[in-house]
Design a protein around this nucleic acid. Structure first.
Length: 468
DNA sequence: TGAAATGTTGGGGCG
DNA sequence: ACGCCCCAACATTTC
């Protein structure tokens, strides 16, 4: 019996997995493999929080595969070398995978296609992780979109995404399984210290957890999504982002679940957020260095401040601005931050502190369980003003007003910054104005004064515009 | 998917 | 009764 390899990457699921279904349909024995590759040039290695998630997601995928009479083979090393060896060992006649879109991975996949076809091994890749391929959407003139709204409108004119594929019920196993690493040997989990307690308390990685989260969202949260999505103290968003980042659920499944309830204003709004993800992938596809380089080149001359102890204060949630500190601590504790607060803390870093968005992108990459190159780079460049469809340079979030507007009762701040819990609503977002401000050894003084910081940022951006 | 500055309007206090 | 001023509330412009 011949063998087909299914290479799992950002698609750690059995449902709606076209590469897997293709392998099954080939009639061959199926060898599922995941490769931990931190060596290939141009492919960014997972950050610390992602490594934690990956451990459990792989564990979950392996358990699901075992339920089908199969298993997940784990190999480590440069993917090209590892897969060439594995194919040789198994005598594989085909390898299938679902497409990913970052430049380094695409280059590598291209080299692999060439290598395998030279060896007579069939290679086929599939659309699984996007609703619309980047090359399926373009302007009238054939150029990639640079603005979200027309991009998404054009997507909605296309035929709707296909119905998700069912998970296989069994998978034919090879006569002998190729050797693989034990998962524990990869040391993906933090040990000394074990900082993952908050992650464990918050998340259930794996396909089952993803499906549960999706149906809970559609049943309980979607109806009020438009109102509640901006309130970080409320569980008003789907919280699907880490599951989506690891492909434990695919966008077609999300699309179908939201649409099954009938087209509504709520599902349209939610799907447009999925649309932002599509837009981000589209941008990354057409701009391979999106996470390294300003989308708008005039920003290359921007005089970012040298990262100093203010970067450290931002990272640790000790800026003296309650909504910023709450967000940064939520991130540190749970590996996730509410999107409204992501915008606020990103504006604070790039505009109040004038620190290069790339420092923030790196920090998010390391601490987010949903770290996703396309979304992360697009979001940071959007806030900094250097990106596509970006916030204009003069749009500076006021952390006090944002806090008062989106956390009016201070519940979010009180939860994540408990040393401020006794302040009344009137001053919870501006503790320095309280009749009795908290002592500096309890809660830090502001590291910058927002009014002055705003003026400084406007001057710097104005100057950039002038010299451009 | 802002905020602050500036402009406009209209009600009410008051001489 | 009338006009003036103040200023809140809202709208517009500017950064």
């Amino acid at each position: 019996m011949s063998v087909s390899i299914v290479w799992f990457r950002s698609d750690l699921r059995l449902s709606d997995n076209p590469a897997l279904i293709k392998a099954l349909g080939s009639g061959d024995a199926v060898v599922p493999v995941f490769v931990l590759d931190v060596e290939t040039e141009g492919v960014r290695a997972p950050g610390a929080a992602s490594r934690w998630w990956l451990h459990y997601s792989l564990q979950s995928l392996d358990a699901s595969l075992r339920g089908l009479g199969s298993r997940l083979v784990l190999r480590r090393g440069p993917a090209e070398k590892v897969l060439a060896e594995l194919a040789e060992e198994c005598g594989a006649k085909a390898i299938f995978w679902n497409r990913v879109y970052d430049q380094g991975s695409r280059d590598r996949d291209g080299r692999l296609k060439k290598l395998f076809s030279e060896r007579g091994v069939t290679v086929e890749s599939f659309k699984a992780n996007l609703l619309f391929e980047p090359w399926e959407v373009s302007t009238q003139s054939g150029a990639p979109f640079k603005v979200f709204t027309p991009f998404w409108r054009a997507c909605r004119m296309l035929p709707p995404p296909a119905t998700p594929l069912p998970a296989p019920r069994t998978l034919p196993a090879p006569e002998t399984w190729p050797a693989g690493d034990p998962l524990a040997a990869w040391r993906l989990l933090p040990t000394s210290p074990d900082w993952a307690g908050g992650l464990r308390a918050t998340w259930t990685p794996g396909e089952d957890g993803a499906k549960q989260r999706l149906s809970h969202f559609v049943d309980e949260t979607l109806a009020d999504y438009r109102r509640a999505r901006d309130l970080p103290a409320v569980e008003g968003t789907s919280r699907l982002s880490p599951h989506l980042a690891f492909g434990e659920i695919g966008p077609r499944q999300i699309w179908q679940a939201a649409m099954t309830r009938g087209a509504s204003a709520a599902s349209e709004k939610f799907l447009s957020e999925v649309g932002w993800r599509e837009f981000a992938y589209n941008l990354l596809f057409h701009n391979g260095d999106l996470a390294q380089r300003n989308f708008r080149p005039e920003f290359d001359a921007f005089p970012w401040a040298d990262p100093d102890d203010t970067l450290d204060a931002w990272q640790r949630g000790r800026t003296g601005y309650p909504i910023v500190d709450a967000g940064m601590r939520e991130l540190w504790t749970t590996g996730w931050m509410h999107n409204r607060v992501r915008m606020i803390v990103a504006s604070f870093l790039t505009k109040d502190l004038l620190i290069d968005w790339r420092a923030g992108e790196r920090w998010f990459w390391n601490t987010l369980v949903d770290a996703d190159l396309a979304n992360n780079a697009t979001g940071w460049q959007w806030v900094a003003g250097s990106g596509a469809d970006a916030a204009p340079y003069f749009r500076v979030f006021n952390p006090v007003l944002q806090g008062e507007k989106f956390d009016p009762d201070g519940d979010y701040v009180r939860h994540w910054v408990p040393e401020l819990a006794s302040l009344p609503n009137a001053t919870i977002h501006r503790p320095w104005a309280a009749p009795v401000p908290p002592p500096a050894n309890e809660y830090p003084e502001r590291i910058v004064e927002h009014g002055a910081a705003r003026d400084r940022a406007l001057a710097a951006f104005r100057n950039l515009k002038k010299s451009a």
